[in-house]
Design a protein around this nucleic acid. Sequence first.
RNA 1: CGAGGUGUGGCUCAGUUUGGUAGAGCGCCACGUUCGGGACGUGGAGGCCGCAGGUUCGAAUCCUGUCACCUCGACCA
Length: 480
Amino acid sequence: MAKNEKLVASITPMSEDFAQWYTDIVKKAELIEYTSVKGCMVIRPYGYAIWENMKKILDTRFKELGHENVCMPMFIPESLLNKEKEHVEGFAPEVAWVTHGGKEKLEERLCVRPTSETLFCEHYANVVHSYRDLPKLYNQWVSVVRWEKTTRPFLRSREFLWQEGHTIHETAEEAIAETEQMLNVYADFCRDALAMPVIKGKKTESDKFAGAVATYAIEALMHDGKALQAGTSHYFGDGFAKAFDITFTDKNNTVKIPHQTSWGVTTRLIGAIIMTHGDDNGLVLPPAVAPVQVVIVPVAQHKEGVLDKANELYATLKAAGIRVKLDDSENSPGWKYAEYEMKGVPLRIEIGPRDIEEGHCVAVERHSRNKTFIQLDNLVEGVKERLQAVHDGMYQKALDNQNLRTYSCTSIDEIKSMLEEKGDGFVKAMWCGDEACEDKVKELTGVGSRCIPFEQEHLDDKCVCCGKPAQCMVVWGKAY
RNA sequence: CGAGGUGUGGCUCAGUUUGGUAGAGCGCCACGUUCGGGACGUGGAGGCCGCAGGUUCGAAUCCUGUCACCUCGACCA
């Protein structure tokens, strides 16, 4: 079989139908199963393990930075949701309502949390009284519900898992610093754990979170050239605090209004991994979050000593803290190669009679199919080295794709022709800051504003749309 | 929510036009032979044909309704 030939006949090739390719992977790699409720999915063990690994890394980082985990209720009384005007308007169209308790109709209907700002605010009003009570650096790992019309596994489901950080501070400066810090935590996480390059930036007015003063986001570019918002961090100013009557007394015995933030990432990141790294043979998982980092495939396992050696390698790697699996099932080696490639296991170790004789094993990297030998007396180090190489290789590959699909344009026509010629991607272009131009660019070219990157470039003096003096460079793109 | 498509063993689908005893491949189970890129033989198990009505002597097939999923748009983490 030719090296590049597709090994898994049942996965639709990306080039043929990207959406179907995505759906195939999600099902075939056993990440999810659909249920009888639209937009609600079973996250299966292999999919959930990816989330658990992400959670572990992020949770550790949050705690290092002084955050504490809490858990708010899942129900929000309608009157509480209604307290902050912009916030309700943003979320009301997509909330699910509980109207009955058993057979009894509720006095006041309860919304299933679409996000928990209101609950945190109600709580802060109760527990924040003095500057000594601040800051509160809270986070929760829960699920939320948004009644989406169109749903897709991981990318847009009606119930999804996430973490939402909610912090409250004495000063605006402190809150702004928190907002920026957490955006950086997300961007670093994407780079170091998910091998996924992202663009950090600020959302435009029209695109920011309902009730926020400013919304920051990290934007990633998928294989098909569409953008995916991978995480957000909001600065709320004192708007929510005012609406919910949260005050504290400062050192000078003056009543002050505190400043708040919130930030979150969701199981959508799993979708991001699939669409950033996956290929026609299936999933490709970054080592840091892969449920299985190394799979050991014994070759000619019926032969004397092979399984013993395979078990020995397994024990050695496991003792070194590597997530390793030994597949000693009766399936043929070829079947196992294809199976674990589809499952995205970053590194495969093959061990057979010839290898044992020569004192090494074969290591094959999932993302590149690179084959190397690792000396058995240097197994742990060798495997760790390979896993690092896989991570680096995956990041570079994703970055190359992003660069290849990032276009700098100075006119609407240029945007159109670049997208036409090279396919969807990130478009960098100058903007005057007027919402009318933002809308018009989307209408004329199909790409919307993704964010105003922190790393600005001066491409032109004029707005790409109206020709008036430009205020900043915006990254535009089609979004998931 | 608008447009289109699909629902038949675990999976992929045939059968629907023209109504007449539910099929295939893969997977699964047992045994044997195999094993360095999805092995093979023999035997076996498994199906309210998405759901509810209707037409008919008879419905997977025709009619009505309904639900779910997929794709594309509008809205959104």
